Amino acid sequence: DVEEQIRRLEEVLKKNQPVTWNGTTYTDPNEIKKVIEELRKSM
């Protein structure tokens, strides 16, 4: 579920933690925001 994935990513973003997405680890909050944007567009 895309909305659930977005929620999880936003939680990680709030905690300022790195997130691994599709085999890539993002540590930059701006990169994580881009991933969230892409997910929103795909909905």
Rank of each mutant, 00 (worst) to 15 (best):
Asp1Met: 10
Asp1Lys: 10
Asp1Arg: 11
Asp1Cys: 13
Val2Cys: 10
Glu3Tyr: 12
Glu3Pro: 09
Glu3Trp: 12
Glu3Thr: 09
Glu3Val: 13
Glu4Asp: 12
Glu4Ile: 08
Glu4Lys: 10
Gln5Met: 14
Gln5Lys: 06
Gln5Trp: 13
Gln5Cys: 07
Gln5Leu: 14
Gln5Val: 14
Ile6Met: 03
Ile6Glu: 01
Ile6Val: 06
Ile6Phe: 03
Ile6Lys: 01
Ile6His: 01
Ile6Gln: 01
Arg7Cys: 08
Arg8Met: 15
Arg8His: 14
Arg8Ser: 11
Arg8Pro: 01
Leu9Lys: 00
Leu9Gln: 00
Leu9Thr: 01
Leu9Asn: 00
Leu9Ala: 02
Leu9Pro: 00
Leu9Ser: 00
Glu10Trp: 04
Glu10Met: 07
Glu10Thr: 10
Glu10Phe: 04
Glu11Ile: 07
Glu11Gly: 04
Glu11Met: 05
Glu11Cys: 10
Glu11Tyr: 03
Val12Ser: 15
Val12Glu: 14
Val12Cys: 15
Leu13Gln: 03
Leu13Tyr: 06
Leu13Phe: 07
Leu13Ile: 12
Lys14Asn: 11
Lys14His: 13
Lys14Arg: 14
Lys15Ala: 12
Lys15Gly: 07
Lys15Leu: 15
Lys15Trp: 09
Lys15Ile: 07
Asn16Cys: 13
Asn16Lys: 13
Asn16Gln: 10
Asn16Leu: 03
Asn16Thr: 04
Asn16Tyr: 03
Asn16Met: 08
Gln17Gly: 10
Gln17Pro: 05
Pro18Trp: 04
Pro18Met: 07
Pro18Asn: 12
Pro18Glu: 15
Val19Glu: 06
Val19Ser: 02
Val19Pro: 09
Val19Asn: 03
Val19Thr: 03
Thr20Met: 14
Thr20Phe: 15
Thr20Tyr: 15
Thr20Glu: 15
Thr20Gln: 15
Thr20Asp: 15
Thr20Ile: 15
Thr20Ser: 15
Thr20Ala: 07
Thr20Arg: 13
Trp21Ile: 15
Trp21Tyr: 12
Trp21Asn: 08
Trp21Asp: 05
Asn22Phe: 14
Asn22Met: 09
Asn22Ser: 02
Asn22Tyr: 12
Asn22Trp: 11
Gly23Trp: 00
Gly23Met: 00
Gly23Gln: 02
Gly23Ile: 00
Thr24Ala: 08
Thr24Met: 13
Thr24Arg: 07
Thr24Glu: 14
Thr25Gly: 02
Thr25His: 06
Thr25Trp: 10
Thr25Ala: 03
Thr25Glu: 13
Thr25Cys: 08
Thr25Ile: 12
Tyr26Ile: 14
Tyr26Gly: 01
Thr27Glu: 08
Thr27Trp: 10
Asp28Asn: 05
Asp28Pro: 00
Asp28Thr: 05
Asp28Gly: 03
Asp28Tyr: 02
Asp28Glu: 08
Pro29Gln: 06
Pro29Glu: 06
Pro29Leu: 07
Pro29Phe: 05
Pro29Met: 13
Pro29Trp: 05
Asn30Asp: 14
Asn30Gly: 12
Asn30Gln: 12
Glu31Phe: 05
Glu31Val: 06
Glu31Arg: 01
Glu31Met: 07
Glu31Thr: 04
Glu31Asn: 03
Ile32Cys: 02
Ile32Phe: 06
Ile32Arg: 00
Ile32Glu: 00
Lys33Val: 09
Lys33His: 06
Lys33Cys: 07
Lys34Val: 09
Lys34Met: 11
Lys34Trp: 08
Lys34Glu: 06
Lys34His: 09
Lys34Cys: 07
Lys34Pro: 02
Val35Ser: 01
Val35Ala: 03
Val35Thr: 02
Val35Asn: 01
Ile36Cys: 02
Ile36Phe: 03
Ile36Trp: 02
Ile36Arg: 00
Glu37Gln: 10
Glu37His: 06
Glu37Ile: 08
Glu37Lys: 05
Glu37Thr: 06
Glu38His: 11
Glu38Cys: 12
Glu38Trp: 11
Glu38Asp: 12
Glu38Pro: 00
Glu38Ile: 11
Glu38Met: 14
Leu39Gly: 00
Leu39Arg: 00
Leu39Asn: 00
Leu39Pro: 00
Leu39Phe: 03
Leu39Ser: 00
Leu39Thr: 01
Arg40Lys: 12
Arg40Ser: 04
Arg40Leu: 07
Arg40Ile: 10
Arg40Met: 09
Lys41Phe: 06
Lys41Gln: 13
Ser42Ala: 14
Ser42Gln: 13
Ser42Asn: 11
Ser42Leu: 13
Ser42Arg: 11
Ser42His: 09
Ser42Glu: 10
Ser42Tyr: 09
Ser42Cys: 11
Ser42Met: 14
Ser42Asp: 06
Ser42Pro: 04
Met43Gln: 12
Met43Pro: 05
Met43Ser: 09
